[in-house]
Design a protein around this nucleic acid. Structure first.
Lengths: 148, 148
DNA sequence: ATCCTCTGTAACTTTTGTAGTTACAATTAT
DNA sequence: ATAATTGTAACTACAAAAGTTACAGAGGAT
């Protein structure tokens, strides 16, 4: 399969609209940073809006955070963009007549749910503010090194 | 993408060869339980053999565990079958000229690695013996309920 | 020794979800 | 009014998984 980068691109988009909140932001502009098409950006904006993570600023017609970045976690963004897919996929078509095939789905579901919850918990600990901060720090570091 | 069920199917296969170790096991027989084709089963066997999880019993020509089921974890099986895919996919093609696009990959990589490690740690806590035990218990429960 | 079964693997096809593209009506800014 | 931009829908392109077909080679059965 082609792996989905929707989650990553949505995080990118959110950091972008925060970092460049002082200039006019269009889907074209965001698309250049993500290196994708404006339509893909608009689709992401739609998902994030549906999830209540961003709203359209009625004043200048561009997406802004619906809540403080410190109040939104990476997991909220994950749910908004890829919440329908499980991290570990159960094979739902196994032979019910068999001791193994007839019970493995529910057993794996328990283990998978547990492991997924551990990952989600980590994502839920990280706020968008932290992501923004780390990117700004990484940028300063890079520029300082380049200047040497 | 079509989500991969290789991990689930490999676990299925391992439980199967343990539960039915007293009968002659062919890839055809396993395929009936997983509801897939014998070739898919043989491919899984190949991956598990390459990873040192199973070997071919020289006596009766069928796959058996290379170590005790209590010494093999779900994570070992995950690595053998889907270890190349990340749980959270970074968009590796972003605009390096941009403050966001030029730093987001490394920042997300840190967060993703952390979240993935949490999930992997959970998988690594569960031995194949536990998976086998839970499936046998689920089967007994199901049969007891059906008999009532 | 020959036959039969099964394995391991390669090559090809089918399927399915993501991403990219094209198009356009509706909205907003100037 | 005009131009820019959005939100969607429809379509195409692409990639990965899984299924299929094929077949040489190994081992066991008789």
């Amino acid at each position: 399969m082609r792996l989905s980068t929707k989650f990553s691109d949505a995080l990118h988009l959110l950091v972008f609209i925060n970092v460049f909140s002082d200039i006019k932001i269009t889907s074209d502009l965001i698309a250049i940073s993500i290196k994708t098409s404006p339509v893909v950006v608009r689709r992401l904006i739609g998902s994030l809006r549906d999830a209540g993570i961003i709203i359209n600023d009625p004043n200048n017609h561009q997406p802004i955070f619906a809540k403080e970045p410190s109040e939104i976690t990476m997991f909220d963004v994950y749910l908004a963009t890829e919440g329908h897919t499980a991290l570990f996929e159960i094979d739902h078509d196994t032979n019910a007549e068999c001791t193994v095939g007839g019970n493995i789905q529910e057993v794996l579901n328990g283990f998978y749910t547990n492991a997924e919850a551990a990952a989600y918990k980590e994502l839920n600990r990280i706020s968008m503010q932290e992501v923004i901060d780390q990117i700004l720090i990484a940028d300063k570091l890079k520029k300082a090194r380049a200047a040497q």
